[in-house]
């Protein structure tokens, strides 16, 4: 029963990683850049929901919605001000800028909310499920995060597969110049991508802090790095790969913590990443890059 409990917890943590990883993967796929400030957008989302819940007494679901709106605007503004002017610069310049934005957000949070740890109130209000006559307890947060991940994945698959804007995103991701010759605005598509990724970051921030209720200005960086790992593990640029990578990473982390060593669990996660990348450099479901000449 402990095994099943760990598996469920792993899936739940992995679901949150997958939701965060989508932000990395989509931005990478379309803007061809690594947005290292993504983890900090999660943190901002968590703070916004924290403030609205604790000091404005807003119901949790509305707080989530507000956090999503704030993060969407934040993501779009970051892209507009920091990344767009560098669109044709070397990728290293963009990468360094992303790291700069990351520190900017952390320090802004430090200034606004101080470094004092905030205890995050869970947005999940229903009671844990007791299964098998009490042998297995599943927390409400666990169920909510797994369900949210499923909904997000289905939603995004539908969006990229069936809608005009979603298809345009795939077109830009595959061949920017050809997309432009179809009349698709690359800038507009990148803006939409940042908006979606940042809204998802807000959801992930709320879920993550509901599971681990410790909120500081650096809260976003560790899940951010792990979700980035998940995206690479599954194959960056691929949406199903992100799901697989995220879930796998969550499960490995929880199992590592339960069966090997509490302290080494992070090291185990990254060791697995290294091994998988040695065997499959494009990640588990990554697209093989074949350049036709």
């Amino acid at each position: 029963m402990a095994f099943l409990s760990n598996l469920i917890n792993g899936l739940s943590l992995g679901s949150v990683f997958a939701i965060i990883a989508l932000g990395y993967t989509m931005v990478y796929g379309i803007a061809k850049m690594l947005n290292f400030a993504h983890g900090d957008v999660i943190m901002i989302g968590a703070y916004v929901s924290f403030v609205t819940i604790t000091s404005m007494d807003v119901p949790p679901l509305l707080a989530l919605l507000i956090a999503m709106c704030v993060c969407t605007i934040l993501g779009v503004v970051i892209e507009r001000l920091a990344y767009r002017p560098l669109r044709s610069s070397p990728s290293l310049a963009v990468l360094i800028t992303a790291i700069g934005v990351s520190y900017l957000l952390q320090n802004a949070a430090l200034l606004i909310w101080s470094s004092n740890t905030k205890v995050y109130p869970s947005i999940v209000t229903f009671e844990p499920l007791h299964l098998f006559g009490g042998a297995l307890t599943v927390r409400g947060e666990t169920i909510v995060s797994i369900c949210t991940c499923i909904i997000v994945m289905i939603g995004l698959t539908f969006f990229t597969g069936k809608t005009k804007t979603g298809k345009a995103m795939r077109a830009v991701s595959e061949n920017r110049q050809a997309a432009e010759l179809m009349g698709i605005s690359v800038n507009r598509t990148i803006t939409i991508t940042f908006a979606i990724g940042s809204a998802l970051a807000a959801i992930a921030g709320v879920l993550y802090c509901s599971m681990y209720p410790v909120l500081t200005p650096t809260t976003g960086s560790i899940p951010g790095i792990k979700a980035f790992t998940a995206a690479v593990l599954g194959g960056i640029g691929s949406i199903p790969g992100t799901l697989v990578g995220g879930l796998l990473l969550g499960i490995i982390e929880i199992f590592g913590r339960a069966y090997i060593s509490q302290d080494l669990s992070d090291a185990i996660v990254f060791a697995v990443l290294i091994v998988i990348l040695l065997v499959k450099p494009n990640g588990l479901l990554g697209k093989k890059v074949t350049e036709k000449v």
């Binding site: 298809k167 795939r170 077109a171 595959e174 061949n175 110049q177 050809a178 010759l181 697209k287 036709k292």
Partner: peptide, 8 residues
């Protein structure tokens, strides 16, 4: 070089 979308 045609530039069609190969994955679509």
């Amino acid at each position: 070089g045609r530039h069609i979308f190969l994955q679509m």
